[in-house]
């Protein structure tokens, strides 16, 4: 296939995934922001939402002040100044989709095109909370429908594999950032950080990745911060965990290598990260520093993205 086509498929999936992740983060933050101040963490919820999407400094450049609910939602959801705002993500996704329409199935195209058309109904500024909830549901629905139609209608060839790579690179990045922003509440109880009020923070992380029920199925006990971290980092059963993302990344990269009859740097890098995730446990990670672990992971993950680009997409 054309390198440009593979590139567009890769980024199309990444942007749809990113839109969904941002929607989930806004959802979580707006829930936490409704808690009485005594229950909330010491930091501004919206500031951590912006940090989790990696756009806090861009926000400060634009607004030059601490985020409020209105300004943060506007920036995360609609702002043209934020390249990762949901609106921008869906627009770029649709642009990429249009550029590779021939590589998409009719269902995928119609999903992304309809979403792009519907997007025009939502603007900044005039959303009340229930409209915001509608908007976030719409974004999640779009991502689910897009992912579902890819899964159900695409031929299992390199088109499909490259689009999967985009999903999992993006998802791994989002999960790692989300944990990192909240890492201070995920440390074990003997650490001085955190306390009883953090219960809502832990559950909010699970909620952000739709994993509250999963947590109880896996651990069968009340919320423990380090178990939340274990679930999100190491549990391959948990579809948004780092380990699960890397299981999928290695599998899809291997399929590409098999199809083309050649292994390369990206296959090696993905396998090495995956092995590291498989051969460690949460205690070791926490002992070595959760933040340091996550920072290294985010760097490795973006390096893998660069290797894939170098090997296939240019």
């Amino acid at each position: 296939m054309l390198s440009r086509t593979a590139d567009s498929l890769f980024w199309l999936s990444r942007y749809v995934e990113r839109a969904e992740n941002t929607a989930r983060i806004i959802d979580t933050a707006s829930r936490l922001a409704t808690l009485p101040s005594g229950y909330g963490a010491s930091t501004n919820e919206w500031e951590s939402a912006l940090a989790a999407t990696g756009c806090l400094s861009a926000f400060k450049d634009v607004y030059g002040e601490d985020p409020t609910a209105e300004s943060a939602v506007d920036f995360l959801a609609f702002s043209p100044a934020n390249p990762s705002s949901i609106k921008n993500c869906l627009e770029v996704a649709r642009f990429n989709a249009r550029a590779v329409r021939t590589a998409l199935t009719a269902e995928m195209w119609e999903t992304i095109n309809s979403a792009w058309l519907e997007l025009k109904n939502y603007g900044p500024g005039e959303l009340d909370l229930s409209q915001l909830a509608d908007f976030l549901r719409f974004v999640k629905r779009t991502s689910l429908a897009f992912d579902g139609s890819a899964y159900r209608t695409m031929l299992r060839n390199d088109n499909y594999w490259f689009s999967r790579l985009g999903v999992f690179i993006e998802r791994a990045d989002a999960t790692a950032r989300l944990i990192d922003v909240k890492y201070h509440v995920l440390l074990p109880p003997e650490s001085h950080v955190g306390g009883g009020i953090d219960y809502f923070q832990w559950s909010s992380i699970l909620r952000a990745v739709s994993a509250q029920t999963s947590y109880h199925w896996v651990y069968r006990q009340s919320l423990k911060p380090w178990l939340v971290a274990d679930l999100m980092i190491l549990n391959t059963q948990m579809p948004r965990s780092l380990a699960a993302c890397y299981a999928s990344l290695t599998r899809n990269l291997d399929q590409i290598a098999q199809g083309y009859g050649r292994q390369g740097a990206s296959q090696r890098a993905a396998r090495s990260t995956f092995t590291r995730l498989e051969s460690t446990d949460i205690d070791t990670i926490i002992a070595g520093g959760l933040h340091e672990f996550l920072a290294e992971f985010v760097a490795d993950n973006s390096r893998l993205g660069a290797l894939i680009t170098e090997q296939y997409l240019v």
Binding site: M1, L2, S3, R4, D158, F162, I256, Y260, L313
Partner: peptide
């Protein structure tokens, strides 16, 4: 057929090639 843009093609020794993932 592939839908190509100019940047997907290049010419070497008077033969036209397209850049593919392979």
């Amino acid at each position: 057929t592939e839908l190509v843009e100019g940047s997907d093609l290049y010419v070497r020794e008077n033969v036209v090639y397209m850049r593919t993932t392979e």
